[in-house]
Design a binder for these strands. Structure first.
Lengths: 186, 186
DNA sequence: GTCTATAGCTCGATAGAC
DNA sequence: GTCTATCGAGCTATAGAC
């Protein structure tokens, strides 16, 4: 079935070029499917993108769930999550879409971004709350604030790495925030 | 002279829509200038954008210089910089361009982003070094690492605020990183 | 389900008059 | 310095045959 090939091509192009710059023509070329197939399976560019972004979101959340729903200790979960390998020069598959006006101003498309970050925020803040209880993390910021901070650092690390063409910026920022969150340092 | 009007329109559109989505047609409409004027003053869309982004960069750096070249104490400078009012839902005028392939892959355009962030990194890390010397900031991360962290938090705060349509995410993240950088908290 | 043809529009840019 | 006219290409989508 060519539907899956079309979806995969769309996911790849959304990451590489974003929503506005992803043309149906490029999806056809990348997937090998024809125009007839594309508009048979998907009603429009937006419909295709909704399915593709939903699938990207599921992939990324499944990845994160492997960490947060594991039996690692809270501090280990945060460490693994923050030190995870990321393609910093390519950008976050979801976060990059937040720059696009057509995404932000469309209720259906933006709802996917909201849901993605809210789920991550929940997992991270729950984990931080537990780590604070056991004294492994400093309590001078609330779990909610710390979770927002962590997600900001990752998203901003992507931006800086791309802007400066320096893949290390993201890991530098992620390492730094982890150190500052932990107790017993000066 | 219509050159300035064209430049102002381009700066506004680059912020609002980004480089790829900024069409010469839209610049004409927004500035009131005709096609003849536009291509008389600027050779191409890229030429226009180079001047516009250079001007945006100068504006933002002038703003930051007011803080970092003031006679405030190092800690005050960082506090003022991090707590500055930002249009979080509109995004960073420079950072948002880092998502665009045509910017990142063009040596001339991307050089402007690199220069912008390198200047900020320099000011921030110098300030942090001084604050650490006087014991006002924790020394568990180097000035370079802390500067990268701070810029990441701001850039990522913009991304989160836009993605979640919540203007408070940026200030929440910025406040949190300031607390964690300071000494005498738990 | 997939193909080809075509529509109507906007893109970035050039030409040439004034 | 600014105007209008026009170019060739690519855009998103629809139509209708197979």
């Amino acid at each position: 079935m060519s539907k899956q090939k079309i979806l995969d091509a769309a996911k790849s192009l959304l990451w590489d070029r974003g929503y506005e710059a992803m043309s149906p023509r490029a999806v056809m070329d990348e997937s090998g499917a024809g125009q007839g197939s594309l508009y048979h399976h998907f009603g429009s560019k937006k419909d295709l993108s909704l399915e593709a972004i939903e699938s990207i979101k599921a992939d990324l959340l499944a990845d994160a769930a492997e960490v947060f729903q594991s039996d690692l200790s809270p501090l280990e979960k945060l460490t693994v999550f923050l030190k995870k390998e990321r393609a910093s020069l390519k950008g976050c598959k979801i976060g990059r879409l937040a720059q696009e006006k057509s995404i932000i101003e469309d209720a259906d498309l933006s709802a996917l971004l909201v849901a993605y970050f809210q789920q991550l925020t929940e997992w991270i803040s729950d984990t931080i709350a537990k780590a604070q209880e056991t004294g492994k993390l400093r309590s001078s910021v609330t779990p909610q604030e710390a979770a927002t901070l962590i997600l900001s650092v990752i998203q901003g690390g992507y931006v800086l790495s791309r802007a400066e063409a320096d893949s290390q910026k993201l890991s530098m920022a992620a390492d730094a925030v982890l150190i500052l969150l932990m107790t017993q340092n000066n």
